[in-house]
Design a protein around this nucleic acid. Structure first.
Lengths: 267, 267
DNA sequence: TGTGATACTTTCATTGGGCGAAACCGTGTT
DNA sequence: AACACGGTTTCGCCCAATGAAAGTATCACA
């Protein structure tokens, strides 16, 4: 739409409608993640570059609305609103609701760790996860994201994208992240693997994410003919080789995915 | 602090540091809850009273930062940032982490629905919940809140507050909400029940929240001598009478709570 | 094809609210 | 007592946030 990048007034942000003060507040909220349980005002300033009085006002506002809480000693933590919002969003998703029973069944019949994930840009977002008792598993939780190209769910979902969409999402990927021994290291290699996945209809990851981890994924379909999500079974390499994944586990996985797909279409 | 309510400039909000535009953005975010999965721009305007151009800008900003997503047909939904933030906050809480195993054990040995909750103002916030197969249960999920005075966990946690704190939290409570047949209906009645709870060290709710539901709760302690959370067992009244709750179930519950407390103190 | 309604997008002028420098405060440390 | 540090409050400037109003796209119904 905006053709006028003629002047140097392009601004850093592409959105002409962005409200700066709101964006700053969101930026502060996003500082809190799995590794960052609590922060002090000073740390918020350091990490964001926002001057202290402004950060103070932002924090006051976030606190007032329950998005931040203060521990007795003044540390700032995500507040109730964040919890309620997040859980509501997660549970509100019909995909998650509908998957609950099939996933539980899958986990029980196979005894393995199972996951449900969707594609967000170049990342896989884990929407549900049922862990088994394996000592070594990927360190992900509901809400975590991982680079799509190193995971079986991610590659599966990438495989169903058009060439253009694929470019858009992973065109800039550097393939240099720390990953497992068999990780893809170039776009060409990725394209080849995606072709195989398209061919066989399922996706396997053999120690691509990390040493010792394998997984197999299949698609979940909604009403449209593109997959809306992926389900997988993740195992320790010590207990299952690649062929084992292609056998009974894949069969159970397919049943679960089909079950979820049917329930989705029935909505 | 601010003694000057002398002028009529008291303003609706008590916070002199509030940033209006940020607050409005948060208000929009909060529209999304368990019953509100998606909204249109027009609905956002109607529900908040924010004029459309402003709402448009707010939504653009929230979208840009991943706090809102747009379905193919333009409906607005909570975005990835909300999911990741919320789950991170939930999982980041050491209380939830530490409770996982004991709660699972409790659920398995008793076969009942078990919950973990904390007190937020006059509400109980459910941090963890393991449901059994009962047809009728309270319609709560992780992240849900319920009025403390109608729940066993809530009353238990209220019972440990000082008179002043109690006043502050439920001083304005009207006791008129739709609740179960045995719900407390006055502050005096509540005080009496809290006294009993303090006496016996556990809390029972017998169809106070809703017809057909009973539960029993005990406290979880951290390093301080006030409880940090409550654990409960929630049953259908058709399968357990009140005396049954006081028996073996209470015993198992106490063990789980003690287990969690020990783990908390070991951190 | 035309008419109108609806929902959203863009413009624009006006102004109040957001902004950061700087001063201030409280607490702990040397 | 002097200092440092983290947080709070003041103050005045000015621009970014605001909403009225105009513009556009889409759909429904004739």
């Amino acid at each position: 739409m905006v053709i006028s990048d003629d002047l140097e007034t392009v601004k850093k942000s592409g959105n002409q409608y962005r409200i700066e003060s709101l964006a700053k507040g969101l930026q502060v909220l996003k500082l809190f993640d799995e590794n960052t349980v609590s922060l002090r005002l000073r740390e918020i300033c350091e990490r964001t570059g926002i001057p202290m009085p402004t950060a103070f006002r932002i924090v006051s506002t976030l606190e007032e609305d329950g998005f931040l809480d203060r521990t007795p000693d003044g540390d700032l933590q995500p507040g109730v609103s964040v919890l309620t919002l997040g859980s509501a969003a997660l549970r509100g998703s019909s995909l998650v609701q509908v998957s609950e029973k099939p996933l539980r069944h899958l986990a029980e019949t196979t005894g393995e760790t199972v996951n449900l994930g969707i594609l967000i840009n170049d990342q896989v977002l884990y929407l549900a996860r049922l862990r088994n008792a394996d000592l070594v598993t990927a360190n992900v939780q509901v809400g975590s994201t991982l680079p799509a190209v190193y995971t079986s769910m991610g590659k599966l979902l990438l495989a169903f994208l058009s060439e253009a969409e694929l470019d858009e999402r992973i065109g800039g990927h550097s393939f240099t992240a720390v990953a497992g021994p068999n990780a893809v290291t170039s776009r060409a290699e990725l394209d080849a693997r995606l072709a195989v996945i398209r061919e066989q209809g399922y996706s396997i990851q053999d120690q691509e994410l990390a040493q010792g981890l394998r997984s197999v994924s299949v698609p979940v379909f909604g009403r449209a003919d593109a997959p809306v999500a992926a389900v997988n079974i993740a195992v320790s390499s010590s207990r299952h080789d690649v062929e084992s994944l292609r056998g009974a586990l894949l069969e159970h996985l397919r049943e679960a995915a089909a079950d979820i797909s049917v329930r989705l279409k029935a909505l």
